[in-house]
Design a protein around this nucleic acid. Structure first.
Lengths: 236, 236
DNA sequence: TGGCACACGTGAGCC
DNA sequence: TGGCTCACGTGTGCC
């Protein structure tokens, strides 16, 4: 049935163009024609066959992928191909939005150590400081940071911790309890004082140079689990 | 003639099945046949035309979507259709992984206050506690938590803060410094002790009942800003 | 019934 | 040159 169909279609193309003459033909010529025809047919048939088979495989590949996509999507409602692709587009857009938000402001830890401190004066005279530091991850980094800040009489308003592959980025928003004269000795800016304190914590970490789990009961060395935290600013 | 040819092509399908009879035909019958044929041809032609046009539009829709997808993807390297879909699959997988991990463990803050504490014994006998709490956001929540834990002689190993619309979820991983006998009085489990301590912090917050930005220079009350934390695993 | 979505085989172009 | 991808028109089945 299938082969019948295939032949019929092909017939309509090749043989009708060359064997359009009909009526009687000399036997020899007919024989020759037939053989030529047969050769052509065989060749063309083979070509056509491989062609259509290749095309079928291609279609199969594409459709397999589409099916996989469909299974991955949350809403399998629309079975239709175009709608499926439309939904996929939405999801990819979502993905891009999220990843771009991760990248934004460099919240993800980098390979090199970093430390930046910015200070901004609020309306009521208080100083709000935003510090971002990036270094190797270790267990008690956050408590140490808090302690360091407390010793400067600074209060943590907000903390954001993002770890990835053994590295950590910390974004801290802190504010002085009272006037800034408490914090900064004459001749030094608030930011540089904070910067020194934080650098001290970072470098103590390097100096201690222990494994993340070293002090505690950390098994082997599990760098595998990573963990990304995102925050958003309040400013809008 | 051009139209006839178009018909001719179609002819191969339709008319050959109906005008299979050959030889001479009475003029009347032939004429009638022609008109019937023409009608059929016209009808079939129109049908075929609309059909192919519809199909073309469908193809266009799909290809438009594919193009959009291609433009959304980071690597535009492979222009080939199947490969494109393969890459899309990878991206969607990534997306699903991430979003599923967000949902997992309920890291996003909810509307109702929550507090859960789990304790797990490590190989070396130390107790590692995972606490997750969700409440209204306020500036010094984290320092207070750290302080509360410190008073229990617990060390913060990891902290994850996720804020969303004025609410905050805190996931803390803490460990006892030494044996657990230090932490828990006889007759009380470690988890319940930790739970009480954290609940104390949460409720003190409620008691204080101040606006988040109340102490600082917070304007009006902007709940609009939200914030999503993402997680990723490395395991590929 | 006609509109819609799909799979098919084929012609054409590109390495 | 064969092998690949693509667009096309068509046959077919489902509401």
């Amino acid at each position: 049935m299938a082969s019948r169909y295939g032949l019929g279609v092909y017939d309509g193309g090749a043989s009708s163009s060359s064997s359009r003459g009909f009526g009687l033909q000399p036997a020899a010529e007919l024989m020759q024609k037939m053989t030529v025809q047969e050769i052509m047919d065989a060749k063309a048939l083979a070509a056509s066959k491989s062609h259509s088979e290749a095309e079928r495989r291609r279609r199969e590949r594409i459709n397999t992928h589409l099916a996989k996509l469909r299974s991955l999507l949350p809403s399998t409602t629309k079975t239709d191909k175009a709608s499926l692709l439309a939904e996929v587009i939405q999801h990819v857009k979502e993905l891009r939005r999220q990843t771009s938000m991760i990248a934004e402001d460099g919240r993800v830890p980098t390979e090199s150590d970093e430390l930046t401190v910015d200070a901004a004066q609020e309306d009521d005279g208080r100083t709000v400081i935003k510090a971002s530091l990036c270094c190797d991850d270790r267990a008690d980094l956050l408590p140490e940071l808090i302690r360091a800040l407390k010793s400067l009489r600074l209060k943590a308003l907000r903390a954001e911790i993002t770890t990835l592959g053994g590295r950590v980025r910390n974004v801290l928003v802190v504010a002085g309890e009272e006037a800034e004269s408490d914090v900064a000795p004459p001749g030094q800016s608030v930011t540089s004082v904070v910067q020194e304190a934080l650098r001290g914590v970072m470098e103590r970490a390097v100096a201690a140079g222990e494994e993340v789990g070293g002090g505690g009961g950390g098994s082997k060395r599990q760098r595998t689990i990573t963990n990304v935290g995102l925050l958003q600013q309040r400013s809008m």
